[in-house]
Design a protein around this nucleic acid. Structure first.
Length: 307
DNA sequence: GGTATGCGGGCACGGTTACA
DNA sequence: TGTAACCGTGCCCGCATACC
């Protein structure tokens, strides 16, 4: 679930002192290669996490999921299941290792996502049937030279990302689709989830994050087919072709009133329901809910500070 | 110095509803 | 299909701060 986490320490000096005394981290100075001047900036790698100390900030950034997998002996990957308790355990371990007081942190970036095993090839879905978010095309649609299938729908404070997790990790005989909400604005974390520090990442916040992920997922246009069969009415066939066209939606935005657009939207969705063209989307939604429940169904009472 | 990032206020816009 | 009104969302903009 929570994968990437980026946060800084409110008490920068204390954190530096703590990691300087730690056996876990080698803090490295940065030197200007031309002048030999020692810069204020210092960096360190701790497992897969990156620590950066600048003049005013001490920041930790990286995948907490991979961090967990490294010390559990599963390798540096994040395609397996990562339960709520695994997360709490990993965070607890990180805090102990680097002597981090949770209340002393401030989260600026967070990624919340789920990996679901699906029947079909994720590439087929991504390339053909996941068409739009909020009736807009993806901002990023990448292939990574054949090593991935990746869609990102970006807004100011967050992105909805959908990609082929099995291909990213070259997993044969697995069809893993990842659906992820990437939050890049701290104000979004505050406003929608009341998340400020790592101590806030409790069950209640996970539920809120998941609900928001579903809310954004619901705004995706995922259809089962790209054409209505010939036995359908001609007017409906044309209507359907318009509805799955991002250009058509863009035109609607520019040319007609919000009222007309609103009605088109309702009619289009009624058409999708009438011909049961949302089976794939419904299936994916069920899998997301199922996976979320599985990952939350754990008892982490042995840790302290766990909600 | 320039650029990137973070932040919050203000406001335009879109979604929605009621009514015509 | 149009008008009006309400409300929430998201985006722009200006400012501050961080970083290079």
């Amino acid at each position: 679930m929570i994968d990437l986490l980026k946060f800084y320490m409110k008490n920068r000096k204390l954190f530096i002192k703590n990691i300087e005394n730690s056996n876990e981290v080698d803090l490295r100075m940065c030197i200007n290669s031309k002048t030999g001047e020692i810069l204020e900036k210092q960096t360190a790698h701790y497992k897969n996490l990156f620590i950066e100390i600048t003049e005013n900030r001490a920041t930790i950034k990286g995948s907490i999921h991979k961090y967990f997998n490294i010390f559990e002996g599963h390798g540096e990957q994040n395609y397996n299941d990562f339960s709520f308790c695994d997360f709490k355990y990993a965070l607890n371990r990180l805090q102990n290792a680097l002597d981090i007081n949770g209340n002393d942190t401030y989260i600026t970036n967070l990624e919340f996502g789920l990996n679901i095993d699906i029947e079909e090839e994720p590439q087929k879905l991504i390339d053909n049937y996941i068409l739009m978010y909020d009736y807009k095309m993806p901002n990023r649609n990448e292939k990574f030279y054949g090593k991935g299938d990746y869609l990102e729908f970006k807004t100011t404070d967050y992105s909805l990302k959908i990609y082929n997790k099995s291909k990213q990790h070259s997993l044969k005989n697995r069809n893993i689709l990842r659906v992820e909400l990437k939050i890049t604005g701290a104000r979004y974390l505050k406003k929608h989830f009341n998340i400020y520090t790592v101590n806030d990442l409790d069950r209640d916040r996970f539920k809120k994050l998941f609900d928001k992920l579903l809310e954004h997922f619901d705004k995706l246009l995922i259809v089962d087919t790209l054409s209505l069969k010939n036995n359908h009415r001609m007017d409906e066939m044309i209507f359907f072709q318009n509805g799955i066209s991002a250009t058509y939606w863009k035109d609607l935005k520019n040319k007609v009133s919000s009222k007309v657009r609103y009605r088109f939207k309702n009619d289009f969705n009624n058409l999708l329901n009438k011909y049961r063209l949302l089976k794939t989307k419904k299936k994916l939604r069920i899998l997301l809910v199922k996976k979320y429940k599985e990952l939350m169904d754990c008892d982490c009472g042995i840790f302290t500070n766990v909600a």
